[in-house]
């Protein structure tokens, strides 16, 4: 076991874990943010998606030893105060989640897409979201919600 320093949701954490421990289990079982989910453990499903310096990564396949203390890790709990991120608001308006299990990962992936591409086309959405499986099949609503979040972001920028 070794000590690692991590910055998760703007807070610094010192964790004592094996160097090969995936970030997923550190976030969930050591730090206690359980919004990040385990779905496949192999990088196939995206349920474990978190943001690393703003980009989506699969935390199940990211050993804790590969992270620097200055890396900014964002989980669903840290995406916004009180679920006020435009993507989260659009998700509620479109009533996207069904079981909800994949949704933390979906929302983080969508927020990263909009941060780098404020007006994504359908093809951009397909590419950016292809790594995130939803067994409940909420894909159509997610697409609508991403478009409406994009509009929201643009209109707040203008005003």
């Amino acid at each position: 076991m070794s000590i690692y320093q991590l910055t998760v949701n703007k807070k610094k954490h010192r964790v004592d874990v094996d160097s090969d421990t995936p970030l997923l289990w550190v976030i969930r079982d050591v730090i206690g943010y359980t919004g990040t989910k385990f779905g496949c453990g192999m990088g196939f499903c995206g349920a474990c998606t978190v943001l690393l310096n703003g980009s989506p990564i699969r935390s199940c396949s990211t050993p804790v030893s590969t992270l620097k203390p200055t890396d900014k890790i964002t989980t669903i709990e840290g995406l916004s105060e009180k679920a006020t991120h435009p993507v989260q608001e659009a998700w509620v308006e479109a009533q996207v989640p069904q079981c909800g299990y994949c949704q933390s990962g979906q929302i983080l992936a969508a927020s990263a897409l909009l941060a780098s591409n404020p007006n994504p086309s359908d093809e951009d959405i397909d590419t950016a979201m292809a790594g995130n499986i939803c067994r409940c099949g909420t894909y159509t609503r997610m697409r609508q919600a991403i478009h409406s979040a994009a509009k929201k972001i643009q209109s707040t920028k203008k005003s």
Partner: peptide
């Protein structure tokens, strides 16, 4: 249940501690 499923607070079996 939707709000708790967009902010990570919904508790699934997996999340029980």
């Amino acid at each position: 249940d939707v709000p708790a499923k967009v902010d990570g607070t919904a508790i699934f079996g997996m999340d029980v501690q």
